[in-house]
Amino acid sequence: MSSEQLSSVEEIDLAAARRIAAEHRAKGSSLVTVLQDVQTEYGYLSREVLEVVAEQMQVPLSQAYGLATFYTSFSLQPRGRYHISVCMGTACHVRGAANVLGKLERDLGIKAGQTTADLKHSLESVNCLGACAAGPIVVINGVQHGKVDSRKVNEILRELD
């Protein structure tokens, strides 16, 4: 699903959410699992989607909302085409991860947890990606970059267009 579609909330097709929730309900899956799959489908959890899931799973909306806000891997906002995660694990921290994040924040003009207005980039800091040996680590749409410093940030960002 492209970001253009994501940006206009009214056009979201809720059928997929309904289908995923129904399938999981039959399997006895947990609400967390359902939300994960639904988020994979839509890229984020809009209010409409969350309402559909709660209804299908027969739980109060407050419970679904509670989960979606408790766990950091859920997003209530659309994310950018390039989702940039900066590892802030201890190993990355002692090797200067804060500077890498600072550089990205300045270059993209957003803070961690935000998405650029054109929905191109979203930036987040994560607590350890488990690739500590090669820290600082930056992951963009699932692709890992190791030993990142200010200069490497320039290279990485250049490659994104």
Partner: peptide, 18 residues
């Protein structure tokens, strides 16, 4: 079961709740 981004879920009772 996949976690969803919560360090506290490494704690046994939180893990089970999750």
């Amino acid at each position: 079961n996949r976690g969803a981004g919560a360090f506290v879920c490494g704690e046994s009772t939180a893990l089970m709740a999750s």
